[in-house]
Design a binder for these strands. Structure first.
Length: 897
RNA sequence: AGGCACGUAGCUCAGGGGGAGAGCGCUACCCUGACACGGUAGAAGUCGCGAGUUCAAAUCUCGCCGUGCCUACCA
């Protein structure tokens, strides 16, 4: 293969591998801590180390990469900070699964060995997703890759924890939290997924002390009744008047518990009587606090009934439910069972039903932090794009509850707190204390809990840049320019980064938050393994190439709408990549030995098609730049698609083909004398437009553009180092565009006749254009070669309106009437049908316009320019219609002869 | 229960007060010297329904219907 030619079809695989290695080797992704250039920075949403690249990652990182490559080409000092998240529960679960296969568990290993084992796992498999991001073309500065558990980040986590504790922003407390009995840990509210569940509402009678009558309560979870310490009714409820303080017998346990009055109770639900289980329901817990009720825990951390549960001890909580119902039934205390749908919380990691569980946990007081985070967005220090999400953000921030940050797992940042065994003092510090500052005791036991994974993620924008040290990286790149993420982690992550960033850096962590849509399957359903509707991005990359995939994602990334992805759609954009490839291939045929340096296109000698394509290119540059600046990836993609395919390929290349082939034959024949004299502007334009197209497309389709770039005359080095095109007002040429519109209109008119009248493409025909406008006639005559070529004409006559050429079909464009001679192949019926169809369309349009112009209010109240526009339109249409009608009658006349 | 989106051509969607658009699909003709992953042409929509504002509504407002999502919670 010659260095300046391309294979017939684009083969992504080898090309992608080669150029990615080249980019890395050349250090083209590297950011500079000190530079004269303006900074642009993004921190990657760190994927879980356990993660495998899925569509969400692919979409998210493609958008980030487009922005980074775009800004880099614009001359910014770009930092795209990469890394992975230790993903506490998720990773622990994965490693535990591995252990289970060996017949072991983490307890048999012990904490230290288990954690060691997780690190091993990470060494071995943790790099997978990074490799996959590279296949996607991600231009992260990999030398800076971070991990939320690495040394520096662990130091940041400890510093933050200690400082928050000293500021009284962290406290320990006994509360009902969400407990996953399988993972054996607390979960934050966000980590619980609620699902509707078809359960039952059980009506249970709690008899009075004399064993007579009693109060009927309704519950969905009868097993918790073993821990009941009261029954609450609404003080205004007539049915339970004067019952406060009376006692009822808790069935099965034979314990007397009081009836209490509580406003919270809804009289319309169930029987209006609510059993109170302070240890196993968050509301009951609060009510218990208010009424000083006993707290009786009957379910243990493993989801089994404990010693307080009488003879149900040791039973699984759901098993116990069945047995309790049976026992109640036997005693005649189960009054009624009705089906009842309610939502049940599940662990977001393992789907186990979450248990509300009373325990001692660490909490962060977030209200003061949230206040700052709200005001930063209100003041516009951080913009949320699209704006609709701002409301959701405020809503959540305004109703935020304290954040339970402790987790009872082993993989994660261990809370830097120690308790003195001697005096019980709690010490929170960066390092393990040697002696208790209170009693000088030396037996200090570290807290066993670790921190919520999102605690370290919340610090990501500054911890990755070296905080708590005052680094040059922070000075240059904080706050980051934009955070690109899905709305699914707006609360988990974005909100918390805002709070931590503002608190510890006194500055927002990012100027913009761009929230993109979710990728769904072709039917709009969430992709999930269990539904079997996932499309694997790596499969897509193998099958269609990274560039086609990336362009698809960008093209569908309309703000605020989810992406329904299917293979068909990706295939469509592979065609686009192929089009680019072949347009380049064609260009290279003609650019052999072309030296762009010695043949700069100069405005004077530019031909019409040259001026036109440069003018269109300039509009495209403007559109793409504006769209990317506003995160409207789909608009940028569609502008590029349209320009490359429908303007550059369909019109420009087709128009200049004859000129290029003529030039080519000059080159081949070695006619030096003529060669030197022919201005080479056409090739110069071709070369420079293609050059610019590649640069415009590079952020979207980095591989194929790099490959072509190196074969394009006049380029030097990587396209990554080339400048992103800028608009140049001098190329804007409305005159050329108007002229081209005329020529394209006439051409389409002729093609329409050819198509409709079934003229075989190989057959050349004669055409006549009649116009009263001298300029129009002159323009068409001047450029008649273009029309003759594109419309496949034998000849083109341009005249004043006059006699209608015999046996011809007609079309009207502007004030021009086009006749195509059809001689032996004219089909009068077909022509009549075609004209009738055309006339019908125009008549319909005229109807609407006429209505407007007959409306006096329209004439007086609408702006003049609108009225004039409509009048002009009416004139045009009426003229066109009358011309077509004339021709129709001629044809009808001819047909009947 | 509350909130937020969305209902435009067969499908996926763009547009967002004055001429209904694109891609894919479909139909017809064509392997014309970059590309059949191609070319040319064509058919196809009361812009969910109903009202209001306006000279003018697919576009703004309200209501309804449908779809999706989010948040909260119901013992």
């Amino acid at each position: 293969m010659n260095s300046d030619t391309l294979e017939k079809g684009y083969e992504p695989r080898e090309v992608e591998k080669r150029w990615y290695a080249y980019w890395e080797k050349e250090g083209l992704f590297a950011a500079e801590d000190v530079a004269d250039k303006k900074p642009f920075s993004i921190v990657i949403p760190p994927p879980n180390v356990t993660g495998v690249l899925h569509m969400g990652h692919a979409h998210n990182n493609t958008l980030q990469d487009i922005l980074c490559r775009y800004r880099r080409m614009q001359g910014y000092n770009v930092l795209w900070m990469p890394g992975t998240d230790h993903a506490g529960i998720a990773t622990q679960n994965v490693v535990e699964k591995g252990l289970a296969e060996e017949g072991k568990n983490r307890h048999s290993l012990g904490r230290e060995q288990f954690v060691e084992r997780v690190w091993q796992w990470r060494e071995e498999y943790g790099g997978l997703i990074i490799k996959q991001l590279k296949r996607l073309g991600a231009s992260c500065d990999w030398n800076r890759e971070r991990f939320t558990m690495d040394e520096g980040l662990s130091r940041a986590v400890k510093s933050v924890f200690v400082r928050l504790y000293k500021e009284d922003m962290i406290y320990q407390g006994d509360y009902i939290i969400n407990w996953c009995p399988r993972c054996q840990t607390a979960l934050s509210d966000l980590e619980v997924d609620h699902e509707d569940h078809n359960g039952n509402l059980y009506y249970v009678r709690y008899p009075f002390e004399n064993r007579e009558g009693g109060i009927v309560v309704a519950t969905t979870r009868p097993e918790t009744m073993l821990g009941d310490t009261a029954v609450a009714v609404n003080p205004g409820d007539e049915r339970y008047r004067a019952m406060e303080g009376k006692m009822v017998i808790l069935p099965l346990m034979n314990r007397a518990i009081p009836i209490i009055y509580e406003e919270y109770v809804d009289t319309s639900f169930g029987t209006g009587a609510l059993k109170i289980t302070p240890a196993h329901d968050p509301h009951d817990f609060e009510i218990g606090q208010r009424h000083n009720l006993d707290i009786v825990k009957v379910i243990g951390s493993d989801g089994r009934m404990n010693e307080q549960a009488g003879h149900f001890q040791g039973k699984d909580r759901f098993e116990c439910r069945e047995e309790i119902l049976e026992a109640l039934n036997k005693e005649g205390l189960l009054e009624k069972v009705e089906p009842y749908q309610h939502s049940v919380g599940h662990c977001y990691r393992c789907r186990t039903t979450v248990e509300p569980y009373l325990s001692r946990q660490w909490f962060v007081r977030v209200k003061p932090l949230a206040k700052k985070a709200i005001s930063a967005v209100e003041k516009g220090e951080t913009r949320i794009i699209p704006h609709v999400w701002t409301k959701t953000y405020f809503e959540w921030m305004n109703n935020i509850k304290d954040w339970c940050v402790s987790r009872q797992i082993w993989w994660g940042h261990r809370i830097p707190a120690w308790t003195c065994e001697t005096c019980g003092k709690l010490i929170v510090a960066m390092e393990a204390p040697e002696v208790c500052p209170a009693c000088e005791g030396t037996t200090l036991v570290q807290e066993t809990d670790v921190l919520d994974t999102w605690f370290s993620s919340a610090l990501w924008p500054f911890s990755t840049m070296g905080w708590p040290d005052d680094t040059q990286t922070l000075k240059t790149f904080y706050p980051t320019s934009v955070l690109v993420t899905g709305f699914d982690i707006l609360f988990f992550w974005v909100a918390r980064m805002m709070m931590m960033g503002l608190h510890f850096m006194n500055e927002v962590p990012f100027k913009d938050v761009y929230i993109h849509a979710l990728v769904r399957d072709a039917e709009g359903k969430k992709m999930s393994k269990s539904k079997g509707n996932v499309i694997d991005p790596l499969y897509v990359i193998d099958e269609y190439g990274t560039d086609a995939f990336r362009f698809t994602l960008a093209a569908f990334a309309a703000q605020g709408r989810d992406i329904k992805l299917s293979e068909d759609r990706i295939q469509g954009y592979r065609h686009f990549i192929n089009k680019l490839w072949n347009a380049s291939r064609f260009s290279f045929m003609h650019l052999r030995d072309f030296d762009p340096d010695s043949s700069q296109p100069d405005a004077q000698s530019l031909s019409l098609p040259g001026r036109w394509i440069l003018s269109r290119l300039n509009s495209t540059v403007e559109t793409v730049t504006r769209a990317l600046d506003e995160y409207k990836f789909n608009e940028a993609a569609s502008a590029l698609y349209r320009f490359l395919w429908h303007e550059f390929c369909d019109w420009y290349l087709e128009i200049v083909k004859p000129v290029l082939y003529a030039q080519l034959s000059l080159e081949v024949s070695g006619d030096k004398a003529n060669k030197g004299r022919t201005p080479d502007t056409q090739r110069a334009v071709l070369c420079s437009v293609l050059n610019e197209i590649l640069r415009l497309l590079h952020p979207f389709v980095p591989f194929v553009t790099e490959e072509i770039w190196h074969k394009l005359p006049g380029t030097n080095g990587s396209i990554m180092k080339a400048a992103f095109p800028v608009s140049n007002e001098q190329r804007h040429d409305p005159g050329a565009e108007a002229t081209m519109n005329l020529l394209m209109g006439i051409t389409s008119g002729i093609r329409n006749i050819r198509g409709e009248m079934n003229v075989p493409p190989a057959r050349l025909v004669e055409a006549t254009v009649q116009s009263t406008d001298n300029d129009v006639r002159q323009t068409i005559e001047e450029h008649q070669d273009i029309i003759i070529n594109l419309a496949r004409l034998e000849s083109l006559n341009v005249t004043l309106p006059g006699k209608r050429p015999a046996l011809s079909a007609t079309s009207v464009f502007g004030d021009s009437t086009i006749f195509v001679s059809l001689r032996d192949i004219i089909d009068f019926e077909a022509e009549k049908a075609r004209l009738n169809n055309e006339i019908a369309k125009i008549t319909k349009q005229l109807g609407g316009i006429g209505k407007k112009l007959n409306n006096a209010d329209f004439l007086t109240k609408a702006p003049d320019e609108v009225v004039n526009g409509v009048r002009e339109k009416q004139g045009e249409l009426a003229e066109k219609k009358s011309k077509l009608e004339t021709h129709l009658s001629t044809v009808t006349h001819l047909a009947s002869n």
